[in-house]
Write a protein that binds this DNA or RNA. Structure first.
Lengths: 187, 187
DNA sequence: TCGTTGAGTCAACGGTTGTTGAGCGAAATG
DNA sequence: CATTTCGCTCAACAACCGTTGACTCAACGA
């Protein structure tokens, strides 16, 4: 146990990291309400009071735990667009970051998670709308986003057998035409 | 207030109905965890203890509140299939029964709601798989179901502006090609 | 070396929640 | 009319939760 010998700053950094990891795991698995500060502390091998001392309250702990990477920039043609989406699916199915899972898990029942989800999905829609042309570009971008949301929810959160049984490549292959049907006319 | 004069059986029936209506409303709006027996009782204008007396516990109240209509039987061709799905969307967007909304709202955070959702979606997939032909019939049926789930979640539960701003017919029109892309070859 | 800082613990409070048991009063029953 | 039934309320309990304040002790800076 060389941990006791670490300098103060480093020790603090690691403990905070352990708490955030535990929080992400539990929020992703159970959602905001069913995750207790006590359980997070137990998993991080720390006193519950320390979690409060570091993060103020449960709300703020959640906020810090679900900080998610920003959506990359736009400017793709139709083909690249579809492959980008199917790629995120592959990514999602493989190892979607637990911070995103935590947000998705709580988005239907926790007001702030819902707000975060709306913002994230809104950015995704904006980004797609830039690469989609023709009429109803924005609506089509929104529907593409909803398709990906539905598949991700079914696969990652509901863990439906029908999606778990097949490979990510197979899902991408079968789903591809549906996304292509929503990309606008070629430029 | 002629209610006081009603016969016992009728009075009981109406009170139970009021409780179930209140429960459905709150479960659909807040999900299982954030809905309290006390809030349900308040909305039904009844003492909290009465809810327990009638339904035993919160779990059973939820079970009774989310009883959902069974999925109709199969045997459609590809066109009918797509229109059936888009029709449920119209239905969903208009007035999806609150019992279904209650189940959907809690499916990511409440274990039993998740089980119900898996069962309901599983039946939907079975039903579609009967009307879809060719290879990967089951996977394609599952993806069609996930598409509808994603659109419904985005529209009904997350209430995304991008979907709320347009009419249900417009959504159906733009979404149709994506569903058609998943129906098998014509018989 | 000595005082200060800060990581981490301990025990407790106040509030909310699901749940229970005793009891009231009006309707049903004979 | 007397008695039983039962819809319904009242008050309380036990458990759990987020949160707080006082405290311990080792690392740090002068």
């Amino acid at each position: 146990m060389s941990e006791k010998l670490l300098p103060r700053a480093e020790r603090r950094r690691r403990t905070e990291g352990r708490i955030l990891d535990a929080a992400r795991t539990l929020f992703a698995e159970l959602g905001f309400e069913r995750t207790t500060i006590r359980a997070v502390a137990r998993m991080a091998e720390v006193d519950p009071a320390l979690v409060m001392q570091y993060f103020g309250n449960k709300q703020e702990l959640f906020r810090r735990a679900v900080r998610v990477a920003p959506v990359p920039d736009a400017g793709l043609d139709s083909d690249e667009l579809v492959e980008y989406l199917l790629g995120t699916l592959t990514l999602k199915i493989g190892e979607l970051p637990q911070s995103s899972l935590a947000m998705l898990r709580s988005m239907l029942t926790h007001p702030e998670a819902a707000a975060s989800a709306r913002e994230l999905l809104g950015r995704q829609i904006d980004r797609l709308a830039d690469s989609v042309h023709g009429e109803d570009a924005r609506l089509r971008a929104a529907l593409m986003t909803m398709i990906m949301l539905g598949v991700t929810v079914g696969h990652q959160l509901l863990e439906l057998d029908e999606l778990r049984e097949v490979s990510q490549e197979e899902i991408a292959r079968v789903l591809r035409p549906s996304l292509r049907a929503l990309t606008g006319p070629e430029v």
